[in-house]
Write a protein that binds this DNA or RNA. Structure first.
Lengths: 132, 132
DNA sequence: GGCGATTTACTCGGATAAGCATTGTCCGAGTCAGAAGGG
DNA sequence: CCCTTCTGACTCGGACAATGCTTATCCGAGTAAATCGCC
């Protein structure tokens, strides 16, 4: 697992939306200025979260982004995995190396343990927690 | 943190050397064939471990690589950090984003917790454990 | 003045470049063994 | 025959490309409001 700039932007964008409530859509432009990040790039990140059905978007004037669920129903894991892809032990890297199967297995389970821990930890924290 | 092909190769190379004992140097060519990986690339990985003083190398005919320490004194963390660099929470990515300080801090400590867990887990396992 | 088609301004959406890290390759530096030559 | 010198083969070492992923940018699709024209 890794922490991209993109996934961090996704989390903070979620916090920004949570703070505004669900009244009206918030424009990407406003979020970008708030986070001090390039507008066009942030949009691409937000798009991924819309595809993952975590955010919802509306086009046209007065359009923008909103949370699709309540802030306490959105975990960090939801956002991070929507952007980075699933958090696993990267076992595909191991399988293309020839080595003793039990050594491969031991290393793989070590990495899987780390991945499991990361998943459970990120699942505990919600957007609501961070927006407080 | 992430699991590169390079760090996996470093671990398996360490296992290969541990299995041979400390009698004579093992050539990179032999390790590369054993792991089914490009020879020239593996050398670059082994070089990093030599620089980190985990392996030792000898040139010339009958040269090769050896472990510098006992297999039970070399942890997975030693090898992985020698190749990937230190395992941290990638907090540098966070600091260039403008956001509420407490939200940034919460996210950063979540990632630091994962990094700490990964470090402690990788520190528990030694090359000797995997070579058995 | 009221209604509707049209234009306009504004938003997100997806396809397209630029930058950087990881992976892969090549040639040179160092080292020992063995052969060649002279004593 | 023995010692010294030289050549050559073999190893690692570090500098140089190629590939893939992350980041950044651009232009087009969609939408609602405002404008203009007609009734």
């Amino acid at each position: 697992m890794k922490l991209n700039r993109a996934s961090a932007l996704g989390v903070f964008a979620g916090i920004h939306l949570a703070r505004q409530g669900k009244k009206a859509p918030i424009q990407g432009k406003e979020i970008a200025e708030s986070l001090g990040t390039p507008h066009d790039y942030l949009l691409k990140v937000l798009q991924q979260l819309v595809k993952a059905r975590i955010f919802m978007s509306e086009r046209g004037p007065a359009g923008g982004f909103q949370l699709r669920k309540d802030p306490d129903q959105i975990t960090l894991l939801d956002i991070v995995e929507a952007i980075e892809g699933p958090i696993d032990g990267d076992s595909n890297v191991l399988h293309e190396i020839q080595a003793q199967p039990n050594a491969k297995h031991s290393l793989e389970s070590a990495y899987n343990d780390v991945a499991r821990f990361a998943r459970s930890l990120l699942k505990k924290t919600t957007i609501k927690d961070l927006a407080a």
